[in-house]
Amino acid sequence: MNPVTELAPQLKQLRLSGILDSLDARNRQAIDAKLAYTEFLALLIQDELARREQKKFGTRLRRAAFRATKTLEGFEFDRLPSTNRALVHDLATGRYIDERAPVLIVGPCGTGKSHLAQALGHCAVRQGHDVIFASCAQLLASLNAARAVGTYERKLQQLARVPVLIIDDFGLKPLRAPADEDLHDLIAERYERAATIVTSNLDFTEWDQAFPGNRLLASATVDRLRHNAYCLTLDGASYRAPRQGPNRAKNALASTPKNIDS
Protein backbone atom coordinates (compact mmCIF):
# COMPACT_ATOMS: atom_id res chain seq x y z
CA MET A 1 0.00 0.00 0.00
CA ASN A 2 1.20 3.48 -0.81
CA PRO A 3 2.16 5.05 2.56
CA VAL A 4 1.06 8.48 1.29
CA THR A 5 -2.54 7.19 1.20
CA GLU A 6 -2.35 6.45 4.92
CA LEU A 7 -0.38 9.59 5.73
CA ALA A 8 -2.81 12.04 4.12
CA PRO A 9 -5.65 11.80 6.68
CA GLN A 10 -3.17 11.66 9.56
CA LEU A 11 -1.36 14.79 8.38
CA LYS A 12 -4.69 16.58 7.97
CA GLN A 13 -5.68 15.59 11.49
CA LEU A 14 -2.40 17.06 12.74
CA ARG A 15 -2.94 20.15 10.55
CA LEU A 16 0.20 19.32 8.58
CA SER A 17 -1.44 18.59 5.24
CA GLY A 18 0.86 21.11 3.55
CA ILE A 19 3.64 18.52 3.82
CA LEU A 20 1.84 16.53 1.12
CA ASP A 21 2.73 19.24 -1.42
CA SER A 22 6.44 18.44 -1.26
CA LEU A 23 6.42 14.89 0.13
CA ASP A 24 6.99 13.09 -3.19
CA ALA A 25 9.79 15.45 -4.27
CA ARG A 26 11.52 15.29 -0.89
CA ASN A 27 11.17 11.51 -0.84
CA ARG A 28 12.91 11.21 -4.22
CA GLN A 29 15.59 13.64 -3.04
CA ALA A 30 16.18 11.57 0.10
CA ILE A 31 16.51 8.36 -1.91
CA ASP A 32 18.85 9.88 -4.51
CA ALA A 33 21.04 11.64 -1.95
CA LYS A 34 20.84 8.77 0.56
CA LEU A 35 19.73 11.14 3.29
CA ALA A 36 19.30 10.01 6.86
CA TYR A 37 15.73 9.78 8.17
CA THR A 38 16.33 12.83 10.37
CA GLU A 39 17.58 14.86 7.38
CA PHE A 40 14.51 13.87 5.38
CA LEU A 41 12.24 14.86 8.27
CA ALA A 42 14.08 18.18 8.68
CA LEU A 43 13.44 19.05 5.02
CA LEU A 44 9.72 18.33 5.36
CA ILE A 45 9.49 20.48 8.51
CA GLN A 46 11.35 23.34 6.81
CA ASP A 47 8.92 23.16 3.89
CA GLU A 48 5.95 23.27 6.25
CA LEU A 49 7.32 26.25 8.16
CA ALA A 50 8.00 28.12 4.90
CA ARG A 51 4.45 27.45 3.69
CA ARG A 52 2.95 28.65 6.96
CA GLU A 53 5.04 31.81 6.94
CA GLN A 54 4.05 32.55 3.35
CA LYS A 55 0.39 32.07 4.26
CA LYS A 56 0.74 34.44 7.22
CA PHE A 57 2.47 36.98 4.99
CA GLY A 58 -0.39 36.83 2.48
CA THR A 59 -2.95 37.29 5.25
CA ARG A 60 -1.10 40.28 6.73
CA LEU A 61 -0.77 41.81 3.28
CA ARG A 62 -4.52 41.53 2.61
CA ARG A 63 -5.40 42.97 6.01
CA ALA A 64 -3.05 45.91 5.43
CA ALA A 65 -5.29 47.02 2.51
CA PHE A 66 -2.52 48.79 0.62
CA ARG A 67 -3.75 50.60 -2.48
CA ALA A 68 -1.11 48.95 -4.65
CA THR A 69 2.17 47.07 -4.39
CA LYS A 70 4.39 49.96 -3.33
CA THR A 71 7.79 48.82 -2.13
CA LEU A 72 10.98 50.61 -1.18
CA GLU A 73 12.72 49.01 -4.14
CA GLY A 74 10.31 50.85 -6.45
CA PHE A 75 10.69 54.26 -4.80
CA GLU A 76 12.47 56.74 -7.12
CA PHE A 77 14.91 58.46 -4.79
CA ASP A 78 16.61 60.16 -7.77
CA ARG A 79 13.52 62.32 -8.25
CA LEU A 80 13.89 63.60 -4.68
CA PRO A 81 17.61 64.24 -4.18
CA SER A 82 17.09 66.07 -0.88
CA THR A 83 15.32 63.11 0.75
CA ASN A 84 17.12 61.67 3.77
CA ARG A 85 17.84 58.23 2.32
CA ALA A 86 19.73 57.10 5.41
CA LEU A 87 16.69 57.76 7.58
CA VAL A 88 14.36 55.98 5.14
CA HIS A 89 16.52 52.85 5.11
CA ASP A 90 16.84 52.99 8.89
CA LEU A 91 13.05 53.15 9.18
CA ALA A 92 12.80 50.17 6.83
CA THR A 93 14.53 48.04 9.48
CA GLY A 94 11.46 48.49 11.69
CA ARG A 95 13.29 50.05 14.63
CA TYR A 96 10.56 52.69 14.95
CA ILE A 97 8.05 49.86 15.54
CA ASP A 98 10.01 48.57 18.52
CA GLU A 99 10.31 52.16 19.76
CA ARG A 100 6.55 52.72 19.21
CA ALA A 101 7.50 56.01 17.59
CA PRO A 102 5.53 58.01 14.99
CA VAL A 103 6.81 58.56 11.46
CA LEU A 104 5.63 61.80 9.87
CA ILE A 105 5.99 62.33 6.11
CA VAL A 106 5.15 65.68 4.53
CA GLY A 107 5.51 67.21 1.09
CA PRO A 108 3.58 68.62 -1.87
CA CYS A 109 1.11 66.55 -3.86
CA GLY A 110 2.61 63.84 -6.02
CA THR A 111 6.01 63.60 -4.34
CA GLY A 112 5.52 59.99 -3.21
CA LYS A 113 4.38 60.32 0.40
CA SER A 114 1.78 57.56 0.10
CA HIS A 115 4.22 55.36 -1.81
CA LEU A 116 6.87 55.74 0.88
CA ALA A 117 4.39 55.15 3.70
CA GLN A 118 3.09 51.98 2.04
CA ALA A 119 6.65 50.85 1.31
CA LEU A 120 7.51 51.12 5.01
CA GLY A 121 4.28 49.28 5.77
CA HIS A 122 5.26 46.55 3.32
CA CYS A 123 8.61 46.21 5.10
CA ALA A 124 6.76 45.86 8.40
CA VAL A 125 4.52 43.14 6.95
CA ARG A 126 7.59 41.22 5.77
CA GLN A 127 9.00 41.52 9.28
CA GLY A 128 5.90 39.86 10.69
CA HIS A 129 3.94 42.89 11.92
CA ASP A 130 0.26 43.59 11.34
CA VAL A 131 -0.35 46.83 9.42
CA ILE A 132 -3.43 48.85 8.49
CA PHE A 133 -3.32 51.48 5.75
CA ALA A 134 -6.17 53.97 5.27
CA SER A 135 -6.71 57.57 4.34
CA CYS A 136 -7.57 59.86 7.23
CA ALA A 137 -11.08 60.29 5.81
CA GLN A 138 -11.62 56.51 5.49
CA LEU A 139 -10.34 55.89 9.00
CA LEU A 140 -12.61 58.45 10.61
CA ALA A 141 -15.58 57.33 8.52
CA SER A 142 -15.08 53.78 9.79
CA LEU A 143 -15.09 55.03 13.39
CA ASN A 144 -18.24 57.07 12.76
CA ALA A 145 -19.94 54.06 11.16
CA ALA A 146 -19.01 51.96 14.19
CA ARG A 147 -20.57 54.59 16.45
CA ALA A 148 -23.80 54.34 14.50
CA VAL A 149 -24.09 50.60 15.20
CA GLY A 150 -22.82 50.73 18.78
CA THR A 151 -19.37 49.23 18.18
CA TYR A 152 -17.28 52.40 18.44
CA GLU A 153 -15.18 51.30 21.43
CA ARG A 154 -14.42 47.94 19.86
CA LYS A 155 -13.36 49.57 16.59
CA LEU A 156 -11.26 52.15 18.42
CA GLN A 157 -9.43 49.47 20.38
CA GLN A 158 -8.90 47.40 17.25
CA LEU A 159 -7.21 50.38 15.56
CA ALA A 160 -5.34 51.28 18.74
CA ARG A 161 -3.74 47.84 19.03
CA VAL A 162 -2.50 47.30 15.48
CA PRO A 163 1.33 47.51 15.57
CA VAL A 164 1.58 49.84 12.54
CA LEU A 165 -1.24 52.20 11.55
CA ILE A 166 -0.70 54.30 8.41
CA ILE A 167 -2.89 57.42 8.21
CA ASP A 168 -2.67 58.85 4.70
CA ASP A 169 -3.57 62.42 3.65
CA PHE A 170 -3.95 63.94 7.10
CA GLY A 171 -5.22 67.51 6.85
CA LEU A 172 -6.52 67.15 3.31
CA LYS A 173 -9.96 68.10 4.61
CA PRO A 174 -10.77 70.13 7.76
CA LEU A 175 -11.78 67.91 10.67
CA ARG A 176 -15.22 68.68 12.07
CA ALA A 177 -16.89 67.18 15.12
CA PRO A 178 -16.97 64.31 15.90
CA ALA A 179 -14.13 63.42 13.49
CA ASP A 180 -11.64 65.70 15.26
CA GLU A 181 -12.39 64.07 18.61
CA ASP A 182 -12.22 60.59 17.09
CA LEU A 183 -8.77 61.24 15.65
CA HIS A 184 -7.57 62.67 18.96
CA ASP A 185 -8.89 59.62 20.84
CA LEU A 186 -7.18 57.25 18.41
CA ILE A 187 -3.83 59.05 18.59
CA ALA A 188 -4.07 59.26 22.38
CA GLU A 189 -4.76 55.51 22.60
CA ARG A 190 -1.77 54.72 20.39
CA TYR A 191 0.58 57.24 22.02
CA GLU A 192 3.79 55.45 23.09
CA ARG A 193 2.00 52.10 22.62
CA ALA A 194 2.19 51.52 18.87
CA ALA A 195 3.82 53.01 15.79
CA THR A 196 1.82 55.41 13.63
CA ILE A 197 2.82 56.66 10.17
CA VAL A 198 1.14 59.87 8.99
CA THR A 199 1.40 61.57 5.59
CA SER A 200 0.26 65.11 4.89
CA ASN A 201 0.42 67.87 2.29
CA LEU A 202 0.59 70.35 5.15
CA ASP A 203 3.92 71.48 6.50
CA PHE A 204 4.58 70.40 10.10
CA THR A 205 3.91 73.93 11.36
CA GLU A 206 0.45 73.90 9.71
CA TRP A 207 -0.92 70.68 11.19
CA ASP A 208 -3.04 72.47 13.77
CA GLN A 209 -4.99 73.99 10.85
CA ALA A 210 -6.59 70.59 10.30
CA PHE A 211 -8.66 71.25 13.46
CA PRO A 212 -10.32 74.58 12.63
CA GLY A 213 -13.00 74.22 15.28
CA ASN A 214 -10.90 73.27 18.28
CA ARG A 215 -7.37 74.62 18.68
CA LEU A 216 -6.93 72.97 22.09
CA LEU A 217 -7.74 69.56 20.62
CA ALA A 218 -5.38 70.32 17.74
CA SER A 219 -2.55 71.10 20.13
CA ALA A 220 -3.10 67.94 22.17
CA THR A 221 -3.27 65.68 19.11
CA VAL A 222 -0.36 67.17 17.19
CA ASP A 223 1.81 67.28 20.32
CA ARG A 224 1.42 63.50 20.73
CA LEU A 225 2.20 62.89 17.07
CA ARG A 226 5.34 65.01 17.12
CA HIS A 227 6.77 63.58 20.35
CA ASN A 228 9.83 61.42 19.51
CA ALA A 229 8.69 61.30 15.88
CA TYR A 230 10.87 60.60 12.86
CA CYS A 231 10.17 63.36 10.33
CA LEU A 232 10.65 63.20 6.58
CA THR A 233 10.11 66.04 4.12
CA LEU A 234 9.75 65.13 0.44
CA ASP A 235 10.46 67.97 -1.94
CA GLY A 236 10.60 67.54 -5.70
CA ALA A 237 8.68 67.29 -8.93
CA SER A 238 5.30 65.59 -8.89
CA TYR A 239 5.09 61.99 -10.08
CA ARG A 240 1.73 62.91 -11.57
CA ALA A 241 3.01 65.40 -14.13
CA PRO A 242 1.25 64.94 -17.51
CA ARG A 243 3.13 63.07 -20.19
CA GLN A 244 4.62 65.09 -23.00
CA GLY A 245 3.26 63.87 -26.34
CA PRO A 246 5.52 63.96 -29.43
CA ASN A 247 3.57 66.80 -31.04
CA ARG A 248 2.87 68.76 -27.87
CA ALA A 249 5.57 71.40 -28.39
CA LYS A 250 4.71 71.81 -32.07
CA ASN A 251 1.00 72.20 -31.31
CA ALA A 252 1.73 74.71 -28.57
CA LEU A 253 3.77 76.85 -30.99
CA ALA A 254 1.10 76.58 -33.66
CA SER A 255 -1.58 77.78 -31.26
CA THR A 256 0.45 80.84 -30.19
CA PRO A 257 -0.85 83.99 -31.91
CA LYS A 258 1.70 85.80 -34.03
CA ASN A 259 2.56 89.42 -33.40
CA ILE A 260 1.54 91.54 -36.41
CA ASP A 261 3.24 94.88 -36.82
CA SER A 262 0.84 97.74 -37.37
Rank of each mutant, 00 (worst) to 15 (best):
M1N: 00
P3Q: 05
L7H: 07
A8S: 14
A8I: 09
L16E: 06
I19V: 14
A25F: 00
I31T: 15
I31P: 06
A33Y: 04
L35M: 15
L35D: 05
L41C: 14
A42P: 02
L49S: 12
Q54Y: 11
A68C: 03
T69W: 04
G74P: 12
L80D: 07
L80Y: 06
S82C: 10
T83P: 06
L87P: 11
D90F: 04
L91F: 11
A92Q: 03
I97C: 00
D98F: 14
E99R: 13
A101F: 13
V106D: 03
G110T: 00
K113Q: 02
L116T: 02
A119K: 07
G121F: 00
H122N: 06
S135P: 01
C136E: 09
L143G: 09
K155M: 14
P163I: 15
A179W: 13
L186R: 09
L186C: 08
I187G: 03
R190K: 05
A195V: 07
S200G: 01
S200T: 03
P212D: 08
L216S: 15
A218N: 04
R226D: 06
C231P: 06
G236E: 05
G236I: 01
A237R: 07
Y239K: 13
G245R: 15
N247Y: 06
K250Y: 02
N251I: 10
A252V: 10
P257Q: 12
